[in-house]
Design a protein around this nucleic acid. Structure first.
Lengths: 112, 112
DNA sequence: CTTTCCTCTGACGTCAACGTCAGGTTTCAG
DNA sequence: CTGAAACCTGACGTTGACGTCAGAGGAAAG
């Protein structure tokens, strides 16, 4: 994590911070999980706005019907993205298998 | 597909085009599959440079050992990405289930 | 009190895959 | 032959999640 990222999350109102009298940020324990969640959702393609909108149900289980719609929309989008990725992976995998079959295993260096 | 995207692919040397005497682009049949492949790989997070590098093995099966390394690297990255996405999806799915279970449809009552 | 490190705010920079606009040229149906 | 639709090149604009820099100030050790 970079300091810049934390500031950015705060700017987006995703991560509140306590301040010392001098103005320095101080985070409660809970912030760690919050940050991990934010990273995960950014990584899954949700926008700042969407995460902000979903925060009440993400962190407090307060889910209204419109929020439920949004949750379902995002989940379905992620599912489609997973399927697209599987397609790409299978394409590469096919090439790898194909290229590997040509050379005997003991001649090829494979990471992992 | 936008025209702009095709021009961009050509700029990146991913998609050659025949030109009419007047300079207009004409694509062979094969180009359709090529474009679909490019889109799929962009969608999976590969850069123009990586796709360009892998083109010989992607479209002609000519895979050198360094290319094989790159293929494996990208495949593994995609696998990690799929797992990350599954994590995010499961989180949302949990919330959806939770929110749905709380108010079974047949129990919902509307306060006056 | 000083030193040294860490933090603050504010603002501009980055990168990639296109979108979009302007002004000119090619194509082809009628 | 002609006119409008489609295409051309070149160039700048967009977007989001930060990176990075400058200058100023707080935080604890000695």
């Amino acid at each position: 994590m970079s300091v810049r990222a934390l500031r950015y999350y705060e700017e987006q109102r995703l991560l509140p911070s306590d301040r010392s009298p001098g103005g320095q940020r101080h985070y409660p324990e809970q912030a760690v999980d919050r940050v991990r969640m934010i990273q995960q959702l950014y990584g899954a393609g949700l926008s700042s706005g969407t995460i902000l909108y979903l925060l009440p149900c993400l962190s407090a289980g307060r889910t209204s019907p419109p929020m439920l719609d949004r949750l379902v929309t995002e989940r379905d989008r992620i599912d489609r993205q997973i399927n697209d990725l599987k397609g790409a992976r299978d394409r590469l995998d096919g090439l790898i298998t194909e290229a590997t079959d040509v050379w005997p295993e003991w001649e090829v260096r494979r990471p992992a």
